[in-house]
């Protein structure tokens, strides 16, 4: 097994494996390992009506929503920690009614991906009983059961193995059309290695029909197989590999670079107004042929500052105010 036919540019990977209307899941979490190079490409190609399925998403989700690529989403959390307690374009889109949206919790979304990965139709949990997550639908009744929209948001039932009254929440499994991940390393055999926290990336990848992985480094098969304990996914589950150094910028990639506080702060400001947000898209995405051109526009000194310490995995002493 090798990367023949799988190694491609972000442009080729998105053209081949992501389509308007697809149900898409994004790897990473709020301000870490967002698949930014792939998301920029989706925006550049003008894909529409994506159906995002998210646990906690930050920068990648907010850009896709702001650029008008998303029609529907299931989500647990849209925020960027201290840089945006609620993602700015996400908030605006929801308040304006631009999105069809339904809320779950993080554990619920993770379990739904896991169920999808295991080939189960549903999964039971105790989380969320009697909350409005259980009681209130976001999608309209006429959309129920159409395409990938589950016929019911969820169901509360008695545990059949206990006395009546022991309630559980049944959640529908998720099998997205495509999952987009950013990893630290991919081997020349397609093996994926994720360093630091894996979040729900592995469940999301195993649940999906197609998987695109962008990565900081491509390393020889012999090297990545020297320590298989550290590996996350076998190559045969990966459809496309994109070599994208700094491909999660401005979010962090453990052991490679920290999040970029300056860029995130600047984004938080410009995202507040339509005009300045449009100018951001024009400069940083539409005005770039590819992600390398975006990177070339960044301040080299800023990139130097976020370089990770090889032991700690982040940039100690980075000014994060």
């Amino acid at each position: 097994m090798d990367l023949t036919g799988k190694l491609m540019t972000a442009k080729q990977a998105v053209e081949k494996f992501v389509h308007s209307g697809d149900q898409v899941s994004l790897g990473g979490f709020t301000l870490s390992r967002n698949p930014m190079s792939l998301v920029h490409e989706i925006i550049r190609q003008g894909l529409k009506d994506l159906y995002l399925v998210c646990h906690s998403q930050g920068q990648a989700m907010d850009l896709l929503v702001g650029a008008g690529c998303v029609g529907r989403m299931e989500i647990a959390y849209g925020g960027l920690g201290r840089f945006a307690p609620t993602c700015v374009r996400f908030r605006r889109a929801v308040q304006q009614g631009d999105l069809s949206l339904e809320d779950y919790s993080n554990y619920q979304m993770s379990l739904r991906f896991w169920a999808g990965a295991m080939g189960l139709p549903m999964i039971a949990t105790k989380t969320g009983l009697n909350t409005d997550i259980v009681k209130k639908d976001g999608f309209s009744p006429e959309d129920r059961g159409k395409g990938k929209v589950p016929g019911l948001k969820l169901a509360v039932q008695d545990n059949p193995f206990a006395e009546p009254g022991d309630k559980v929440v049944l959640l529908p499994a998720l099998n997205p059309d495509v999952t987009l991940l950013h990893a630290q390393q991919v081997g020349t055999d397609g093996t994926v290695r994720i360093k630091g926290l894996s979040f729900a990336d592995l469940e999301q990848a195993r649940a999906a029909d197609r998987v695109i992985v962008s990565c900081e480094e491509i390393v020889p098969k012999e090297q990545i197989r020297q320590d298989p304990d550290q590996n996350a996914l076998p190559g045969f589950l990966v459809d496309a590999v994109v070599h994208a150094p700094l491909g999660a910028h401005p979010t962090a990639c453990h052991y490679f670079y920290d999040y970029d506080p300056q860029h995130l702060k600047m984004y938080g400001k410009v995202a507040k107004e339509n005009e300045s947000f449009q100018a951001y898209l024009d400069k940083w995405i539409y005005g770039c042929r590819d992600f390398e051109e975006y990177l070339a526009k960044l301040d080299p000194a800023a990139l130097e500052r976020i370089k990770a310490d090889p032991v700690l995995g982040y940039a100690p002493g980075l000014d994060r105010r």
């Binding site: 709020t30 870490s32 920690g81 926290l197 999040y259």
Partner: peptide, 22 residues
Amino acid sequence: LAVADPRVMSGSAMNAGLIEAF
């Protein structure tokens, strides 16, 4: 500054994922 900050991945007993944490 966030629960996904690389500072929660450093010097830890283990780095896992959401399912393990919950």
